[in-house]
Design a protein around this nucleic acid. Structure first.
Lengths: 329, 329
DNA sequence: ATATTCATGGAAAACGATTTCCGAAGCATG
DNA sequence: CATGCTTCGGAAATCGTTTTCCATGAATAT
């Protein structure tokens, strides 16, 4: 294998000099740089990232942590977007990514998790869809041992940034739009998980709208489950209801239930997943560009790794009405 | 960080002895083993996989290579299953996995690909959904530089194994079942990609059945595209046709088209993706357990890395009839 | 001309494992 | 008792980088 040593020999300089050129350190003359770069070209040299990671304890090895708790097709799509977005951007930024599922961390103590990450020379972490209740992860963030970007959880300190779309505003907006298109005074709201950060925000948005518009609002917990949403709709939906759901999967379940009951009232969802095109009826929803969110998260992590301080980033969303033709590719 | 050196000190032995114990090498007395293991416990030691990889050029770092060519929701589900299956099993077998997309390798020469893999200290590779035409990957396998497992491509040599379900038989079986349930003599077969290994096999299965049963068979290339399948169905489907598709996505497209034409004839698919539950009508299909296939692929790669020779592995499949209630979770 | 700075490049020590080789016991054999 | 064989444990080289620190010579200041 072509190593930095070979490059040094070819260029007639020392190993350390090659390293300096490669990493853009100062105190190297233009002339020497040229020699080194030429040697790199000639030998078609690619640095060994593993050795770099070992040596520097810093060279960009990061992990993405996915919460696979609730498996479903929708989640597949969202996670796949996250993965593709993360890995794609990471390659461009010269970061190595390893993918971790929450299940691998479950029943591990903070100490063990830290040790595991260290054993992999991981210095940065992107956490997707973290629950309010995850003690270990919260302490991991507090410890400030790693650079961390959380997606959809508002946890910011010196070493960690948070990135999300404004869930409250989005829920408010999509419900308002649906309401405008279909007169109604009574809303059945199927909320997400009790301990989810996003669920709480979305619920707030719905409550604000209800208050402003003087709507009657019935809230039930749907746990992001299509099946549960279906059952709740059977149980609680009335002919005059508008059913607003905290996720598309729940919206699909609710819509199915309404169709079975021969009630033709609007349902609106949240996420903008492809499956909405197959729900049988068009629905309003909030499209989140998951790949872009992930890509931004990687960029933010890179900034943290380069010494930046933690901060909040809010991305935009889009209100859409999804139908089959939109998702057909 | 706790290193092997600390363990050695704690146990009162040499570094090399610790390493031998950890890796199960011979020539260590039970007594010494006990001392070392105790020290490992006490210090809560976890070996640094990065250092191990660098040092041994062997310690299980593997890559999974996904062909994301055709993005679609169905593909999301399949790939997500592949990823979860691979990573999950890899953790259990103490392998580190990095995920690579074909797009990262595109327009790279064999040399560059080899170099890239080496730069990551990767010794093993699982390739999902490889095309017949990918020159670089074929040469990579021929070169026998890495241990490789291909999923759905029959490429076997000393260093590489192949794993798949019997596509020919499965296509034959599902079409036959559909035919039995719905009398018919004339079949429209929407095939997959011209250069896919699986597409060719499935087509063979269909042709064998047509010959055996004396059916009239019209074959068109649907490229695994829902949209194209829809268009082809509009164009070629007749009232007496049974439409057999080489993938579920195409089956869904075909079914939509038939419904639009008010033709009520069966369609059958292939893959067993969740989306089939939302197609509007029940369809027969072949369920492949993608997570299990991936998990098996990891096991096989592990065997190769441990010195085993390449071989073929054929996994089983299941004929199912998919409806909404089956996919609702 | 001498002293002081500065830019530049090199030598060498990490990083945390693996692995080869070698020496010291321990034991049986002749 | 000397010899040869095992068995076991340790010293040291190695993997391919990064990074610290030092030496050199040129440039500047005195």
């Amino acid at each position: 294998m072509v190593s930095i040593k070979d490059v040094a020999k070819q260029a007639g300089v020392a190993i350390s000099t090659v390293s300096k050129v490669l990493n853009g350190y100062p105190n190297v003359s233009e002339e020497t740089k040229k020699k080194v770069n030429q040697a790199v070209e000639e030998l078609n040299f690619v640095p060994n990232t593993v050795a770099a990671a070992l040596s520097s304890k810093q060279s960009g090895r990061v992990a993405m942590l996915l919460n696979l708790g609730n498996i479903s097709q929708a989640v597949d799509e969202i996670h796949m977007q996250y993965i593709a977005g993360t890995i794609g951007r990471a390659v461009e930024l010269n970061l190595d990514v390893i993918t971790i599922f929450d299940s691998m961390l479950k029943s591990k103590s903070l100490d063990e998790v830290v040790r595991y990450l260290r054993s992999q020379s991981i210095t940065g972490l992107i956490i997707f869809g973290m629950s309010k209740e995850d003690r270990v992860l919260h302490r991991l963030i507090d410890a400030q041992l790693f650079k961390i970007v959380t997606v959809d959880a508002p946890l910011v300190n010196l070493c960690s940034s948070a990135i999300w779309i404004d869930q409250e505003a989005a829920q408010y907006a999509v419900a308002k739009k649906t309401l405008k298109e279909n007169a109604g005074k009574s809303i059945l709201y199927l909320a997400g998980k009790k301990n989810g950060y996003v669920s709480a925000e979305r619920l707030k948005g719905m409550q604000r709208l209800a208050e402003e518009e003087g709507l009657s609002l019935l809230v039930r917990n749907g746990e992001f489950s299509e099946r549960l949403a279906r059952e709740l709709t059977f149980r609680y939906a009335r002919k005059k209801n508008i059913v607003v759901c905290a996720s598309d999967m729940m919206a699909i379940g609710a819509m199915r239930a309404l169709m079975d009951m021969d009630i033709f009232r609007p349902v609106c969802g949240f996420d903008g997943i492809t499956l909405m095109g197959y729900a049988g009826k068009q629905m309003n929803t909030v499209r989140q560009d998951f790949a872009r969110i992930a890509s931004k998260a990687v960029e933010e992590l890179k900034r943290l790794l380069d010494g930046g301080e933690g901060r909040q980033i809010v991305l935009d969303y889009e209100l859409v009405r999804m139908k089959y033709e939109d998702v057909l590719i």
